[in-house]
Amino acid sequence: MTTTQSTTPPALLEVCELSKRLAGRQVLDRLSFGVAAGQAVGLLGPNGAGKTTCMRVICGYLSPSAGRVCVGGRDVVQEGLAARRLIGYLPESAPLHGELRVVEHLAYRARLRGLHGRAARTEVERVVERCGLGAVARRVIGQLSRGYRQRVGLAEALLGAPPLLVLDEPTAGLDPNQLREVRELIRSLAGTQAVLLSSHVLGEVEALCRELVVLDHGVVVAKGPLEALSAGGGVALWVTIRGPLAEIRPRLEGLPGVAVSEAIELPLEPGVVRCRLSGANDAAARERVAGTVFAAGWGLQELRVERAALESVFSQLTRERE
């Protein structure tokens, strides 16, 4: 497992050695991670990695087969009611009562969270405004678009301002405009409420979270800050040189710790070669490359460092277990 250091305050959500067996299959296997107050953490993994099961255990819908989950110091099994008061949950498909109007649905859910009378009305007004539902507040939920339904589900999770929001694939099935709106809404929550967000879409997690937990086949394969995980995937060095391809390739391959993974002469610029070097992870290696080019009398047109995208890290981590 890849673990990178992060300087986070004590966790609001603590998942310790969590395991879950469903229908004889080990869906989660000794998961451990935490989410601090106000922090946005992405639970990333391919389909079937166990993200939804993990979230269902955290929210008290499923019980753990082994291990422990605490929210605000409350065990979700032993003190389920108290723990669930601290969680706002949006399941994957945002299930809602289609026959109710938006405000009726939210008022019903607010009452279930212990808010009544004026307090419930004020809270419903707050989440309606926060989620941009004012225009559809009196509409029947069954007649709303997917994007609005998702926002109603999010508004429901926000009721009572719980310190932890658990959002399971919150933007699944949305069109690009809806996706942008929902992302902006979630981003605006960061800092005030902790968010645990699951997704199999890397861009989603990169856009919304600074901390990641990568899950595969029910196991945490990596966790830590986004930048640190991306860096773990290594760097590539792109060099564009004016000079003969036949000489450039062997000279660069002769440098210690540097491998030429690609070298081509640009078709539209004869005599100009572009190389992709791997292994040149530190500044000293890059200086050796530049020195070799100058010493040979070639022209250095470009020297560019390309960090590995999270995508490649993700593929690497999840492929290792297959």
């Binding site: 269902r56 108290a82 669930r84 969680i87 949950y89 399941p91 299930p95 809602l96 212990g114």
Partner: peptide, 14 residues
């Protein structure tokens, strides 16, 4: 069937 049982059981309700 509709999935609302999940949100009901994860609400602070017995």
């Amino acid at each position: 069937r509709s999935g609302t049982l999940e949100t009901l059981l994860t609400a602070p309700v017995r």
